[in-house]
Simulated assay, not measured.
Amino acid sequence: MKIRPLTIEGAFEITPVQHGDARGRFLEWYRFDALTEAVGHPLDLAQANLSTSARGVVRGIHFADVPPGQAKYVTCVKGAVLDVIVDIRMGSPTFGAWEAVRLDDEDRRAVYLAEGLGHGFCALTEGATVAYLCSSTYRPGHEHGIHPLDPALGISWPVETPELSGKDAVAPTLAEAKASGLLPQYDACVAHVTAKQQ
């Protein structure tokens, strides 16, 4: 398993080693010890989610209040998605930056994103199925979104007309979320992660 940091602090790309023969393939798509060594603390597994999306669906950009936030370990078990991580932490050196990683059922890559980062993806195939391991459970009222088509973010979604949920379609822009105090503070996110490393 190869784990490499992305350009946004707290985000990592994971590439598993696959073993295959005429019968099929086997791989370890998550390793507690390997991830702990890479990020400096274990992923507290509190909830596992699965979503299936039609081609062209864009989900996100979603995030949770910090603390406790919600770290995620995400992979695509069927089809392909373009997974996008956005730094929405106020005061971060890379605030407003985003990075994309293709997740699919061939390379079987995964991404890890720390608490306080925004997350979304675009389904590149019909029936794209994404599995998430989450560090905290869903908490109504503490989960938020940024409009995925916000021109200020400038995310290059690989579809002409992204299909959004009703909730994502009316989500605030990054500037609106900032003005309303919705965004997590970089210092609080760093302190939260540092506390888990002790």
Rank of each mutant, 00 (worst) to 15 (best):
I3E: 09
Y186C: 10
G141D: 14
P158V: 08
E163L: 10
R23V: 07
V17I: 11
K72D: 13
I14P: 01
I8H: 03
A175G: 05
I155T: 06
S156T: 08
Y138K: 06
S92D: 12
Q198L: 14
V66K: 08
G69H: 02
V81A: 03
L50N: 15
E9P: 01
C189H: 08
V86Q: 05
I14V: 15
E160R: 13
V74Q: 03
G91W: 05
W98C: 07
P184I: 10
G91A: 02
G10V: 09
I146W: 00
H119S: 06
K2T: 12
Q198Y: 13
E176D: 14
V170G: 00
L153Y: 03
D168T: 11
P158G: 13
T36G: 06
Y73S: 00
S165C: 05
R102P: 00
G20R: 08
M90Y: 04
G10N: 08
T194W: 09
A100I: 04
A123L: 05
T129L: 05
G120V: 10
H41P: 12
H144Y: 15
G69P: 00
A64C: 10
D44L: 11
F26Q: 11
T15E: 15
Y30W: 11
Q70K: 08
P42H: 09
L133H: 09
I155E: 06
R109A: 13
C134G: 00
R109C: 11
G141T: 10
R4A: 15
P16Y: 14
E176A: 15
G60P: 13
G69D: 09
A179R: 14
R59K: 10
A188K: 11
G120E: 11
G120A: 10
A64T: 14
F12A: 07
H144D: 00
Q185S: 14
P67E: 00
Y73G: 01
K196S: 15
D168N: 03
A195W: 06
L182S: 03
L164C: 08
G24T: 10
I14E: 07
F26D: 12
A128H: 02
S165W: 04
L50F: 02
I8W: 03
P5E: 14
I85E: 08
P148W: 08
C189T: 08
M90Q: 14
A38M: 04
P172R: 04
F121R: 00
V190H: 08
P67R: 04
G145W: 01
F26H: 12
P67M: 02
R31W: 09
F63R: 07
E115S: 06
A188T: 14
G145D: 09
A195T: 10
V84L: 02
L43K: 02
Q18M: 12
